[in-house]
Write a protein that binds this DNA or RNA. Sequence first.
DNA 1: GCCGTTTTCGGCCCGACTGTTTTCAGTCG
Length: 575
Amino acid sequence: MTNQEISAVFGRIADMLEFQGANPFRIRAYRNGARRIADLRESLATIVSEPSRSLTDIEGIGKDLASKIVMLLESGSFPMLDELLAEIRPTTLALLRVPGLGPKKAALLHRELGVASLDDLRRACESQRVRVLKGFGPKTEESIMQGLDIAAAAERRTRWADADLVVAELLAHMRAVDGIRQMEIAGSYRRGCETVGDLDLLVDGSDSASVMDRLGSMPQVALVIARGDTKMSVRLNSGMQIDLRVVPTESFGAALQYFTGSKDHNVLVRRRAKQQGLKVNEWGVFRIEPDGKESYLAGRNEEEVYAAVGLPCFAPPLREARQEFEWAKTDAIPELVQLADIRGDLHMHTTATDGKSSLREMVDAARARGLEYIAITDHSQRVSMARGLNPTRLRAQWVEIERMRKEVEDIAILKGIECDILEKGGMDLPDDVLAEADWVVASIHYGQKQSAEQITDRIMGALENPHVHIIAHPTGRLINRRNPYAVDMNQVFLAAAKHGKFLELNANPARLDLHEIHCATAQQHGIPIVISTDAHSSEGLDVMRYGILQAQRGGLTPADVANTMPWQEFSKRLR
DNA sequence: GCCGTTTTCGGCCCGACTGTTTTCAGTCG
């Protein structure tokens, strides 16, 4: 089993234990274990196979979880898991996705009314059997009815780039309110997560009523879920939820820190504060005096909040309770790569295949964005739907590129190709053609459903080809649409490091693979990452910023990203 | 279930809002 699968098993167990009303700290231990495993940069199987190492060296994994991991690796299951699965069906677990239904209420519905699925729940509400239960009432029943559709469509998080569009509209709408001193979107959006659940809107303003009125008047608002003195929640027609908090100036930084999260990061910040006799909440940092009184220490901005507990102000993408606190101890927090560091873009298409802009337009667009070098990498012949290039058409394009080089001298244009890795293995173009290219991107578009062994062998073959420089979108996933291929990335990392190849971080907001943990793993292996737009039009070059966010979350610095190099330096890496 | 520079037992982050309550549990972030 892979780390992701084992992580998912522990996550499911946490859900099921929660449903059973187990000790919340036990549940947290499973969730924490699941997250730690997902964040791991090497496979559990590898660790287990090395006698000198122990799974319990992993933070959050004790004796019990370690033995369960071993059983999962050996047999794919263990007794406790089987028992839980026999008791609680997955359809029952879906009840927890209904907003407002937590483990206690869901379990009560299951126990008292035999509700074991969302369909059961709908019927129970319609026949008004829910409102008579203890702790429930007509309003709860009604809100469950409304929540059912959301639950059915749940698990859908919005891609960051799509959330960004909503954010732009939201901020523009809110700016009309007088007296807003500061305003930020916090949460997973601010951390640059590849997908975003809710939007957390934070406002520093004195008149919270008018701020809330304004949010409620946004045309896209379908429903006001809750509204109090400082907090309001609304749901948009799209299903996305917006949580608004209005705070005073002296608390804005504390609230921003708090609502930016991640939750796990904040738990560690607060634990640390507690050890120092301090308390951190969304209102500020407070010293607990011997008489029990609290005195305000900080909260106006994030810098002073972190400083009050002896921490540096971490960049939001690093706030995931992974390594940031270790880095802080040794003053080794990475200087994250920024969009302004990028000097080249090494994966783009033109009208020669499925691009919408001509070679000339792509070159001009790249120059307009201040790039020093680009690679033109149209599809190879196997990608027939995109009218992929055969050797003749490819060489014709290269002649055109050579002509253009004479016209525009302020940008280097590489003669490249995105060459398919064929289903049966091997490259889609002969070696003598690839040898003439400046830059060969190898990628998979067909046979994505093959076994792990087949897919991995294909990519290994490409990595061994002396003409290939880089593997593009190495896992092939499309966020919310298509799972990654079954490729064994551990082998890919080892081979890429051995053969001195680059790996791509594809900046297309639907792809973003390598994902953040893969980025960190590649960095550890010393594999240079290239962040590429895979642009299919001149505007497509602007997706670079999404790739930068992903790289930041992986902790990458300019030194880890090859296309931050000036052309003079990068050109030496090509042969 | 995990963890240890107060600890191998007894902790484990903190507050707002709602609905159903007569003082609070459940949910959410």
